[in-house]
Structures are given as structure tokens and as C-alpha cells.
Simulated assay, not measured.
Amino acid sequence: MTALAPAAGSRRVLADIIARPSTRARAFAMDATLVLAGVAVVALLAKVSFYIGPVPITGQTLGVILVGAALGARRGAASLTSYMLLGLAGLPIFAGPVAGPAYVLSPSFGFIVGFIPAAFVAGWFAQRAWDRRPVLAFVGFVAASIIPFLVGVPYMALILANVVGSDVSFASIMGAGVLPFIVPGLIKAAFAALLVPAAWLLVRSLDRRARD
């Protein structure tokens, strides 16, 4: 087991279906591969986006939920930390064509920071088997989806007021950074709450066939 693997006593997540290598070095290499695969998933879904204001509606949150649930809390958080750092290093993996260190001045950067604890929370619920039943998965995934707003909305207000120079009010921030995302967020959480339990059903079905 490596530092990124789920803690002792936690239930398996989807990534744990893969047989763990016997040596610590190989186990670490596998965890690193899973973390980078998570980066790729979020980067791909980030390109599914459209702007309705200073913060775009994207597929990133869906990717964050899926990566956290599939990899578990620690690997999920490591994956989204890597995603943020690689984007700041200049890789074009954020929504839109802009990347690099200057992205910290983007109104949407706070949401990217919030993706890290969001993935951890999605993984935390998954490690307690909430991802195996659609209703419980939906509750856990909605909880995880809220977290980026706790970081992103205050950060957006700060950037708009002090960098962009916009007039900022509670109503304008709610209109730009919260209200347009409620329904899409619920839809993405619901989709993930169907997809992940379906993946577990497939795993159990294949496992039964292997035993027969």
C-alpha cells in the first residue's frame, strides 16, 4: 500500500479492482498512473464548456466527481492537485485556451482550487460504499459538488472587484457564480450517481461470471 491508497478499513473503490502490485515501487507507479488518468479525464471534460458569464459551465465538475469516486479520497485529491499544477505550468487543460501562472487571476481559478477537496469528499463517500446505490451516490456527489462554490465564489468576487474592476454585489455574484450552475450541477451529480453504481453492477456481474 502507498500513501495514496485508501486507508485501512475503507471499502474498495473502482480503482482498487485492479490487482495491487506486490512491491511498493510498482504500487506507487500504479497510483501515479491512476492520478494522471484522472487528470486526463478532467482535462477532457473541461473542454466541454460554454460561457454565460465570468465563469463557464463545464464538464469539469462531472470529471471531479467521477475521478474522486473511482480513485478514492487521497488519489482523487492528488489527481486534482496535479490537474491544477499542470495547468498553472502551462498545459492547456483548463476550460478555454488560457493556462499558465496568470490563470490565478482568472475569476474561475477559485473553482479549480475547490476541485481538490471536492474530489476528496467524493472519494470519501465512495470509500464508504455510497457510490454503489444511486440515491446515496447522488447525495454524496451533490455534497462534493457544493464544495468548489465555497472556494470559487468568494475568489471570483475578489478577482472581479480587485483585478477586473467590476462593481460587485451579492446579487451580481449569485447571478454570475451560483444560480446558473445549480440545475447543471444537479444534472451532473445525477448522471454520475447513475454511472458509478452501474459500473459497480458490471464489476459484480463479471466477478460472478469469473467464479462460475
Rank of each mutant, 00 (worst) to 15 (best):
72 G>I: 09
113 V>N: 06
85 L>W: 05
126 A>P: 10
103 Y>L: 09
159 I>E: 11
161 A>W: 12
74 R>C: 04
180 P>I: 04
107 P>M: 10
154 P>A: 07
11 R>K: 15
160 L>V: 01
88 L>K: 06
211 R>W: 10
139 V>Q: 05
76 G>F: 09
42 V>M: 12
31 D>S: 06
164 V>W: 03
65 I>P: 06
109 F>W: 13
202 L>S: 12
200 W>M: 04
9 G>W: 03
163 V>N: 04
170 F>P: 00
184 P>T: 01
42 V>P: 11
207 D>S: 15
173 I>Q: 14
120 F>D: 03
187 I>W: 08
200 W>Y: 11
9 G>I: 02
59 G>H: 09
23 T>K: 07
202 L>F: 13
101 P>M: 11
70 A>G: 13
192 A>V: 11
91 L>T: 06
185 G>P: 13
118 A>L: 01
169 S>W: 07
102 A>F: 10
155 Y>N: 10
146 I>D: 07
151 V>P: 02
112 I>H: 06
150 L>Y: 02
91 L>C: 00
87 G>C: 02
105 L>Q: 06
86 L>R: 00
210 A>R: 15
141 F>E: 05
182 I>K: 11
136 L>C: 01
61 T>R: 05
68 G>A: 06
44 L>E: 01
70 A>F: 12
189 A>I: 09
11 R>T: 05
175 G>M: 04
16 D>W: 05
204 R>D: 15
35 V>W: 04
10 S>V: 01
172 S>P: 04
104 V>R: 02
34 L>Q: 13
156 M>L: 15
74 R>H: 12
173 I>C: 07
128 R>E: 07
171 A>T: 09
102 A>T: 14
208 R>L: 14
59 G>C: 02
12 R>C: 02
88 L>M: 13
157 A>K: 10
16 D>S: 14
87 G>I: 02
79 S>A: 15
212 D>R: 14
190 A>H: 03
143 A>N: 02
185 G>I: 04
100 G>M: 04
64 V>C: 12
149 F>G: 09
29 A>D: 08
59 G>D: 03
206 L>P: 03
29 A>F: 03
21 P>R: 09
37 A>R: 00
6 P>L: 10
188 K>W: 08
182 I>T: 01
7 A>T: 07
119 A>L: 09
133 R>S: 13
